[in-house]
């Protein structure tokens, strides 16, 4: 079963952009509590630039789309989210290079993305970063078929809630030490929207089938 096509990947980015725009304020408020308060602005700008870049470009493969996404996010997002999301999409792209994105390739790509975030951010599980969400999604996909998207989203949701009571040890929030507790991690929240967007695309298809 093919999970992602060029069209679906473009639609995925479109769905992400909609969510970043709609939740810009929420992400910013979360980041104001424990960071530098620009996450919503950065993510909205980043994915707006992504859409501008990919909408009118012809791509040969999903890997090519995601490489373009990675380059754009790295250049345009600013803050730590730029290189972190840039690395995630670049690793996905590399895992998909020269392949059709079936279930196995997709699962490998998500795991590679999670490992990329871990490497770039020097983060481990439970450190109140977006790695928590990506790692849990990769773990879920290692056990379950890539079809129960509701369950996958529940995993994301639960992971975000877990970040609320954690003390941050990475990123700007780590300077707040204990004060970072009681707030959901903004990067985990934006990662949730990325997977929620994916679920929407998976459940509606791209109309070409």
């Amino acid at each position: 079963m093919i999970i992602l096509t060029v069209e679906k990947t473009k639609k995925w980015m479109n769905e992400i952009q909609k969510r970043m725009e709609a939740n810009k304020e929420q992400l910013t408020v979360l980041d104001q509590a424990i960071g530098d308060g620009d996450h919503g602005i950065n993510m909205e700008r980043g994915f707006r630039e992504v859409l501008a870049k990919i909408s009118d470009t012809e791509y040969e493969s999903v890997a090519d789309v995601l490489k373009s996404v990675a380059m754009t996010l790295t250049a345009k997002v600013g803050g730590a989210s730029g290189p972190l999301y840039g690395t995630a999409f670049l690793k996905m792209s590399m895992a998909m290079q020269g392949k059709e994105v079936d279930e196995i390739v997709f699962k490998t790509a998500v795991r590679e993305a999670a490992e990329g975030i871990k490497m770039r951010g020097k983060a481990g599980m439970g450190e109140k970063t977006l790695y928590d969400v990506w790692n849990q999604v990769a773990n879920f996909l290692a056990e379950e078929p890539a079809e129960d998207w509701d369950a996958l989203l529940e995993v994301c949701q639960a992971t975000i809630e877990d970040t609320r009571e954690m003390t941050a040890t990475k990123g700007r929030a780590s300077y707040l030490k204990e004060r970072s507790k009681g707030h959901v991690d903004p990067g985990s929240m934006s990662s949730f929207y990325i997977f929620e967007a994916l679920m929407t695309v998976m459940e509606t298809g791209d109309g070409s089938e």
Binding site: A80, G82, P83, T87, R120, G121, K170
Partner: peptide, 15 residues
């Protein structure tokens, strides 16, 4: 200076 500056520097070196 801060962490994300280092991440961007690492990415530039790799890319």
């Amino acid at each position: 200076d801060l962490g994300s500056a280092k991440m961007n520097a690492e990415m530039a070196i790799e890319m």
